[in-house]
Design a protein around this nucleic acid. Sequence first.
DNA 1: AAAATGTTTGACCACATGGTTAAACATAAT
DNA 2: ATTATGTTTAACCATGTGGTCAAACATTTT
Lengths: 214, 214
Amino acid sequence: MNNTSKEELILEAAMDEFIARGWSGARMQSIADRAGINKTLLHYYYRSKENLYEQIVRRTMEYFFGSIFRKISGIENFEEFLRTFINTLIDLSSDNPRLPMFIMQELSRGGEAVLAILNDVLSRNNPPVTVVMLRNITRAMDQGKIRKISPIQLIMTLLGSSLYFAMAEPIVMKIGGMNGFMEGFDRKSFLEERKKEIFELIYRGLENRVADHG
Amino acid sequence: MNNTSKEELILEAAMDEFIARGWSGARMQSIADRAGINKTLLHYYYRSKENLYEQIVRRTMEYFFGSIFRKISGIENFEEFLRTFINTLIDLSSDNPRLPMFIMQELSRGGEAVLAILNDVLSRNNPPVTVVMLRNITRAMDQGKIRKISPIQLIMTLLGSSLYFAMAEPIVMKIGGMNGFMEGFDRKSFLEERKKEIFELIYRGLENRVADHG
DNA sequence: AAAATGTTTGACCACATGGTTAAACATAAT
DNA sequence: ATTATGTTTAACCATGTGGTCAAACATTTT
């Protein structure tokens, strides 16, 4: 049980707390409890709530964007890119359901500091995820593999479709539970089905076929 | 300037504050300031923060689900249903960008009380929005207008695609601003374009055509 | 005019929370 | 052995926040 272990323990506890309750909801005492240590030690390692928070935000963004980057960079084939991107987003968000909302929420709320972190994190991947995505889409369009669309719109649709369920899962389950449909719901198989359905829907929707019916 | 007016002013102020900062971030003093009154009067009308919050949640949900219900109920044609649903979601969420996230966040966090409100709100529409949506989709499937898919998956995709941009707008703009693409961005036309692109993509993706290539 | 209701002022309280401090103890590094 | 570092205990402080109270003033209702 060396120092790194406790420092790491604290970070993980803080991550849980901040992601679950947000900046204003998070409690230093609660973080200490989760980490199994006391408040004094918390301040010993991380001077203030602000400081700790900043490190959590960085960590979270690195994890999120890093994961996506590692999975999609290097893929040349559009179909594979599409499938991988969707799968990665769904896996990421279903493993860490509060993560996407945390990132979005804190980026809306946060000031310069949070933006600087985002900037820093994104610029570490070369080329940045955003560029990789745009390239894949425009290339597929140029090659005539998909019809002409707005790349940014497609990216929005992909992100929304893939991330939404994890974000809305609590409410979906509640509404579903109330109305009765959703009995025998199996999360794992639902998510696998989701991957396929999104891919299928979007891939078909992008098909570049000459108007074949009116 | 009668009493109803002030009571209403407070509600609106509280709505802004709660939606912008969430439960733990919202401040009673700040609500009073926004409403242009003092804290005492705030407690005079709404006893406690909890109580005020509950009314805001109810109001918000009534507004959100009510708007959707009013727009889509009664529509028989699937294409029209699809288009209207997408348009409504985009208009609603772009007019009130924090609303969807507020609802989702507070429903994850909130206990029995919030769930009870949701239940109450949803049961006031007959048939509930959820049922209307499911019906439209299954009917279209039965009539062979669209291919066989999982209705719930489609609904998730529709919600995600349509709501996501408003939720992620701050981060999208920041990333977009950093990378340079997104110059001359016009929100209004982007949103109109978004409506069309989502509809087009999903409508094509749902088409029920016999395998015509492979 | 009188009563009821709306509204402000300003002081006040209890409590939670972020943060500090000093002293003692534990464990590892020199 | 001694020093440096990690860790706990427990008390403590300043501040912010939800909430209250009493008294006065304003406006509407009766």
